[in-house]
Structures are given as C-alpha cells and as structure tokens.
Amino acid sequence: MILKSIPILFIFCLFVFTDALAQTTRESDTKQEIPSNIQTVKKKKKANKNSYKYKMDNAIKEYEELQKTNAKKKSKMQKDMQKPQYSDPTYFGHKKKPKKRPLKKRKMCKECGIVH
C-alpha cells in the first residue's frame, strides 16, 4: 500500500513545486524596480494654444487690460469736465468765453447759434 502511494505523492510534489517556481506576468512587472538614485520628475504640461484653459487665461488677461484702460479714460474725462468750458454755462460750448460786444457789432455765432 505504501509503495502504491509513493508515485502518486511524487507526482503531486512535482506539480506543486513546478507551480511555485513558475514565473507569472505579475511577478515580472513588479521585479523591475527603478534605481533609487535616479529620481523621476514629472514635467508640467504646457497649455496648448488651442486648449480651453489657454484661451480662458488669455481672455481674462485681455479683459483686465481693457478694464484698466477704460478706467484711465474715464478718470481723464472727469478731469477734463472740471474745466470751466464744460462746467460754466456762460461758455455756451466754446473753448474761450465769448466776448460781450456792443449791440451794433453783435453777430450770429456759427458754433452755438446765439448772437453775441
């Protein structure tokens, strides 16, 4: 009885050890290690000119520049409006205040349409 079981035991051990020594695909992937002295650095990907992010960034920059230029224009206009030719009603839209002439010499003004 013992002699009959020895070949079966031998075949069983042969299969067990060959499976243990066999190489699988998972083992081959994990055994490839990167040397510790070489550090891998991930490079930051630049935004492509056709990408959504690049277009949005440029649009925001353009919008901010437009806002700055418009603010400068408005402040300049406000300074100009402080001048007497715009704030004083006696100028009638002239750059210089019109002279008051005697009644005989008065004539029609081409700018404002008033006789002075």
Rank of each mutant, 00 (worst) to 15 (best):
K68W: 02
I6H: 03
K72T: 15
F10T: 11
D29Y: 15
R106M: 15
I60G: 00
A59Y: 02
K99L: 12
K55L: 08
P98F: 02
M108D: 13
S36Q: 05
E64A: 06
P35D: 15
M77K: 08
A47S: 09
K96Y: 07
S28W: 05
D19E: 02
G93V: 05
Y63L: 14
F12P: 04
A47Q: 04
K44N: 03
E27S: 03
Q23R: 01
K44V: 03
M108R: 06
K95S: 03
F10Q: 09
P89I: 09
I34C: 10
Y52I: 08
K96N: 15
I114W: 01
T25N: 13
K46M: 01
K42P: 04
N48R: 05
P89T: 04
I11Y: 14
N58S: 13
R106L: 14
K31T: 01
C13A: 12
T30F: 04
T90N: 09
T40A: 03
K73H: 14
M81W: 04
N50Y: 13
L66F: 11
I60R: 14
K44I: 06
Y86M: 05
F15R: 06
R26H: 01
S87C: 03
P102G: 09
K76C: 01
K76T: 05
K73L: 13
P84E: 03
E111A: 15
R26V: 01
D57A: 09
S87Q: 05
F92D: 13
M77E: 10
A20V: 08
G113H: 06
C109T: 08
M56Q: 12
P7M: 09
K44E: 12
L103C: 04
N37Q: 14
P102K: 15
A59F: 09
F17L: 10
E65Q: 11
K46T: 07
L66T: 14
E62K: 07
P89M: 04
T40V: 11
K72R: 05
K74N: 15
C109Y: 07
K45V: 12
C13W: 13
H116P: 02
N37V: 09
D88C: 10
K97G: 01
Y54H: 15
A59E: 07
F17Q: 10
Q78V: 03
M77V: 14
G93S: 05
S36V: 12
H94R: 03
E111C: 06
K45F: 10
K68N: 07
K83N: 15
Y91D: 07
